[in-house]
C-alpha cells in the first residue's frame, strides 16, 4: 500500500503554507500524519503536494487567552493529555484524551489534525462541538475564525475553505461556578473510534442548581452533535437522576443515527441516551464535589 507520488514542502509560516495551498488545488496539509497517511497508503487521498506544517512555530502551543484556552493546531494529543493548563481550563478535553487511539497515536497525532479531519466518531471533535469551541484558521486574507457549529458538514467534510489552514481551537471560559465533566464511550475495542460517545459539562451554583450545561454525542450520525435542548431543560433546575434521564432521552429523540458493520442505528440512538445520561450524572457529581466559586 504505497501512496501516489507527490512533492513535499516544509514552509516556515502559516502564510507560506496557505500560499502553497492556493497555488495547487491538489495540495494537502500534513501535521501528525496519523490520519492522513493511512489515506495516502490506500490511495484514498491523492495529493500532488504535501505541505508539512508540523514544525511551523506559531502553530504549536497551549495558551491561556481571554480567560479561556487556545490550543495550536500542531499540538500533539499527548501534550494536551498531560497539560496542566488543559486540566484547569478545559477539563472535559483532558477527560476525553485517554480515549483517543492509544499511546503511539497520541505521541504523534495532533489536535488540529483530528479537528480538521472531522471523523464523526472522534473524541476531540466531539469535545469541541460540545463546548461550542471556536475554530481558528488562516487563509490568504489572514487569520479568521468560525464557530464549531458551522464547521462540520458531513463525515470528514468540514467548512474549512480551500487553501485555508486550521491554526488552532479556542475554548471560551465557562460561566463561573462549580464545574464538572463526564465522558463515556462505547467502542468495539478500547482504542477504536467510538460507536457512540457522550461528553458533558455542567456548572452548578452554590445551591446545586444548574447554571450551565453542555452535552454532545459522537459516533451516532454524520457529525458530532451538540444537544442544544438540554440547556432549556436543565438550567435553573436541580439535576436529579430522574431529571437528567428524562432530559437526556428527550434530547436524543430526534438524533439521526447511522447503521454500519459495527452497530445498528437503533443501537446508537438508544445508547446515545444512556451515555448522555451517564456523562451528565458524572458531570453533576463532580461539580457537586467542587467547592463553591472555584473550578474542581
Amino acid at each position: 500500500m504505497k501512496p501516489v507520488n507527490f512533492d513535499y514542502a516544509r514552509p516556515n509560516s502559516v502564510a507560506a503554507a496557505c500560499a502553497l495551498l492556493a497555488a495547487d488545488a491538489d495540495a494537502r496539509l500534513i501535521a501528525g500524519g496519523q490520519t492522513l497517511i493511512p489515506m495516502l497508503a490506500m490511495r484514498l487521498s491523492r495529493p500532488t503536494l504535501l505541505v508539512d506544517i508540523l514544525r511551523v512555530p506559531e502553530l504549536n502551543g497551549i495558551r491561556e487567552k481571554h480567560s479561556g484556552l487556545e490550543i495550536g493546531a500542531t499540538t500533539r494529543h499527548v501534550e494536551v493529555e498531560t497539560s496542566a493548563l488543559v486540566r484547569k481550563h478545559v477539563p472535559l478535553l483532558a477527560r476525553a484524551m485517554p480515549w483517543v487511539g492509544h499511546p503511539a497515536i497520541r505521541a504523534r497525532g495532533t489536535i488540529g489534525g483530528s479537528l480538521a479531519h472531522g471523523d464523526p466518531a472522534a473524541e476531540v471533535p466531539l469535545v469541541a462541538v460540545t463546548l461550542g469551541a471556536q475554530i481558528l484558521y488562516e487563509d490568504a486574507e489572514g487569520p479568521k475564525s468560525m464557530p464549531i457549529n458551522e464547521f462540520y458538514l458531513a463525515p470528514t467534510l468540514t467548512a474549512l475553505p480551500a487553501a485555508a489552514c486550521l491554526t488552532g481551537v479556542r475554548f471560551a471560559a465557562p460561566v463561573a461556578g462549580r464545574r464538572g465533566c463526564g465522558f463515556h464511550e462505547v467502542s468495539a475495542r478500547r482504542s477504536d473510534f467510538a460507536i457512540v460517545a457522550a461528553a458533558a459539562e455542567v456548572v452548578l451554583d452554590p445551591d446545586d442548581i444548574c447554571i450551565a450545561v453542555s452535552a454532545g454525542i459522537g459516533g451516532a450520525g454524520d457529525t458530532p452533535v451538540r444537544l442544544h435542548s438540554l440547556a432549556e431543560a436543565l438550567v435553573g433546575s436541580k439535576l436529579t437522576d430522574r431529571v437528567l434521564g428524562e432530559a437526556a432521552r428527550a434530547a436524543v429523540a430526534d438524533l439521526d443515527t447511522a447503521d454500519d458493520l459495527h452497530a445498528s442505528a437503533a443501537y446508537r440512538k438508544r445508547v446515545a441516551a444512556v451515555l448522555a445520561e451517564r456523562a451528565l450524572r458524572d458531570a453533576r457529581d463532580e461539580a457537586m464535589q467542587a467547592s463553591s466559586g472555584r473550578r474542581g
Binding site: 462505547v186 468495539a188 460507536i195 459495527h262 452497530a263 445498528s264 437503533a266 443501537y267 438508544r270 445508547v271
Partner: peptide, 10 residues
C-alpha cells in the same frame, strides 16, 4: 457483536 447483544436485550 455488542450491538446485536444490546439490541436483543432492549
Amino acid at each position: 457483536r455488542l450491538s446485536e447483544i444490546g439490541d436483543a436485550i432492549a
